[in-house]
Design a protein around this nucleic acid. Sequence first.
DNA 1: GGTAGGATTACG
DNA 2: GTAATCCTACCT
Length: 217
Amino acid sequence: MMTTAPMITTEWCARSAWVVAPDLIGCTIVRQFPAGRQLRGLIVETEAYQQDDPGCHGYRGRTPRTAVIFGPAGYSYVYLIYGIYHCLNLVTDRNGFGSAVLIRAVQLDQASLQNIPPPPRKSPEKIHRLAAGPGKLCQVMGIDRRHNAQPLAVQPEQAEPALWITHRTDAWQRSYEAGQQQLIQTTRIGLSQGQELPWRWYLQHCPAVSKRAVAKR
DNA sequence: GGTAGGATTACG
DNA sequence: GTAATCCTACCT
């Protein structure tokens, strides 16, 4: 039985952000520490951004901070938000076009839960929400601006990668195709502009998702 | 050189 | 509702 899947490729990333974003659900973020400790998180929530969208950091053109999202696909874009938290993105689409997918939530696997320093002496109900939010996932996985503009896709020459993304496992894909996983598409969170675009995706019924769609009434 | 505000979060 | 906390981007 396959427990790990191959790394994503730059070609796979080089598609529209709103195509990559739902495809990233079910993929895994792997965080490798020098000492050998490894954390793995199943991606359960994503948002797409691109330069012609007013919610995108690249909307007003390329700046030093956002330069990486205008570059080739497959790289990380990590930025500091509110002076406190970091957010992790995967750069998508063609070189020269600013776009990225924000990873909003992951579900840590069982082994990873054993491997986080301030151990989860939390209630079981809280444990699966340790990485339920873009700031929380970076915090718990030790991701910060040192990880900005790093390749997250296959990079043969990379000596000691600290962070990468693997595809859905066959088992996950099978369960998805069997209808046991459902993706919800809805609007993005926390924006002052572009709130109407339905460019957020998350796994239905997943407790690790940051926020559910606002219930209509 | 000055400053408004942010793809967040936890707590009241 | 609001504080925490630090850049970034933009203005003078």
